[in-house]
Computed example of a mutant assay.
Amino acid sequence: MAMYAMIAAATYQDTGFFTPLYHIAATFIEPEAMMTSMMKAGEGSTFYFSLGPAAVGAIVHMMVGAGYGMMFGIVAVLARLRGVMLIGSGIIWGAIVFALSAWIGLPLAASLFGGGDPIRDMASMVGYPTFLVEHLLYGAALGLLLAARPSARS
């Protein structure tokens, strides 16, 4: 998911390869790195990097993904999902996480942590089609990961 977001940002969005990490970090820190990355990308420098904001963004994104992943894992175990059903359900879960994030989680996080418009409007800033594909990839990877467990194959 993150790699797709970063490749999209570096290519057809032309906002900078690391900008998605800085965008997520703006939940808790000033959006300066995000704005600088976008400005530099507009000037032709696609790979502006700032370690602190990138690390904050990566940690926040991984923790949120792990939380949603744990919820899906619990449901998958209780529903005894296996194989293709597990993968398909993961993709559906990705769509649910997209909706929850875009219209509930991000606006709530923006209000609670002071991230403002960059967080509240993240889905529209990224573009709803890209944001949806990112989350479908997350769900597919989650389903594949869980399907690869020995207990999920029987």
Rank of each mutant, 00 (worst) to 15 (best):
M85W: 15
A8C: 10
P107R: 07
M6P: 05
M125Y: 11
G105I: 09
A9K: 00
I92Q: 09
T19A: 11
G52W: 15
E43M: 03
T27H: 00
G16S: 02
P129S: 09
G143R: 02
L106R: 03
S154T: 12
R153C: 11
D14M: 13
P20I: 02
A55G: 01
Y68Q: 02
A9P: 00
V64F: 14
I24T: 14
I96N: 01
A8D: 02
S37M: 04
G90K: 01
R80S: 15
G65V: 11
A54S: 10
R153G: 12
Q13E: 13
Y48P: 00
V56P: 01
A2E: 15
M35H: 12
T46K: 14
G143H: 06
A5C: 08
R149H: 06
F72S: 09
M122P: 08
M39A: 15
D121L: 13
M85E: 15
V75K: 13
G139Q: 02
P150L: 02
D121G: 04
L146R: 00
L106T: 05
H135L: 06
G73C: 03
V75G: 15
M3G: 15
A152D: 02
I104C: 06
F72P: 00
G57V: 12
L21H: 01
S89P: 07
A110C: 07
R153Q: 14
A141T: 12
I92A: 08
R120K: 11
G57S: 10
G90A: 05
A76P: 11
G57W: 07
Y48M: 08
A8W: 06
A110F: 09
M71N: 08
L108V: 14
M1Y: 10
S151R: 13
F28P: 00
F17E: 04
G69K: 00
A55E: 04
D117L: 13
M1S: 11
R80C: 14
L136S: 06
L142E: 03
G67D: 13
F98K: 01
T36G: 11
R153V: 07
L142Y: 01
F17C: 10
G115M: 13
L132T: 00
V126S: 04
L86M: 10
L145P: 05
T19P: 07
I24D: 06
A123G: 07
R149N: 09
A58R: 07
P31A: 11
P107V: 10
E30C: 13
F49V: 06
P31K: 11
G94W: 00
Y22E: 09
I87W: 06
T130C: 15
L136A: 03
D117H: 12
G116N: 11
T19E: 12
G90Y: 05
L51Q: 08
G69N: 00
E32I: 14
T19C: 04
I91T: 09
I29V: 12
V126D: 03
L81Q: 03
A123F: 00
G16P: 10
G44N: 04
A109R: 04
S89F: 05
I92F: 09
G16T: 01
Q13R: 15
Y48T: 05
P31N: 13
A109E: 03
I104V: 07
L137D: 04
H135Q: 01
G139A: 03
I92N: 07
F113L: 13
M62I: 14
V75I: 14
A25R: 04
